[in-house]
Design a protein around this nucleic acid. Sequence first.
DNA 1: ACCAATGCAACAGAAAAGGTTACATTTGAG
DNA 2: CTCAAATGTAACCTTTTCTGTTGCATTGGT
Lengths: 147, 147
Amino acid sequence: MRRNSRLSLALHTLGHMAGEPERIRTSADIADHAGTNPVVVRRVLGKLRDAGLVTSEKGHAGGWRLARSATGITLADVYLALGESLIATDAEEAEPDCAVEHALQQEVSMVMQDIEQSLIDRLARTTVADVPGRRERAASGAMDNRN
Amino acid sequence: MRRNSRLSLALHTLGHMAGEPERIRTSADIADHAGTNPVVVRRVLGKLRDAGLVTSEKGHAGGWRLARSATGITLADVYLALGESLIATDAEEAEPDCAVEHALQQEVSMVMQDIEQSLIDRLARTTVADVPGRRERAASGAMDNRN
DNA sequence: ACCAATGCAACAGAAAAGGTTACATTTGAG
DNA sequence: CTCAAATGTAACCTTTTCTGTTGCATTGGT
């Protein structure tokens, strides 16, 4: 697959599911459509399940489906479920000698976390139901972002 | 270094430069403060130079400095200069058999590009001058010089 | 009982990124 | 003029990260 494949795969799959919420899909089916491997699908969807976005059923007629309405799942839910952290840096590693240096690192860190939070806020304004063709925005007056 | 190191390194360095705009810094100095390698610094700052954010001078007393006021450099400038693409996917690779599948891929792609654009818009609201302690926003009026 | 699904661990392979070395080029300083 | 100090780049190694894959235990409907 390509860059940002986890998020892409998740959105792709959830988009499919939003189209036919009743249908139970196996990881093999999904992998087929997404052009990847069933285990990869289970890995990604497993995180979504842990976050309560989808449910999985073992056994013979098992498979995956949405845990709730597509309009109730925002892209922020997906992003956070996958544990993505595109902007924010991890905790410090090397303690800088200089105090000024340390302060600057803190500043950079804070700015990046600030940006990441803005990203999450933006993601929260689009739901899975908005992905497959229908172009309504999520809830409340969260219209238009691009100032 | 750690995750998102290029953006982190760029912000760190520009933050330093914003503090003492007159001072010319060598890649060795910068690498020292950032805990990395001079060549890595030159790689990253080279992209910023190509984008016109910093200038570099060869030769004996050479080094790097801001190309314009720190208030005139937004994080979006930095992000784009580095060629980062955190959200958006690359162009398609495998043409899906099904037309519905193709349409969905397009949809997912469009949504992700939409998100990325929102991210860039957000980044454009913070300048390098906001990084090292001063917490003003870029605000409309802050656009001074572009020499 | 059987078969088809998830769950999970382990490993291989590719790809991306940082780090490092080497060297050509440029340029100010003595 | 010569030398030292800096950038500019290419090449390579190593580490890390991620996907893909195999294998197997477990679960649960038919």
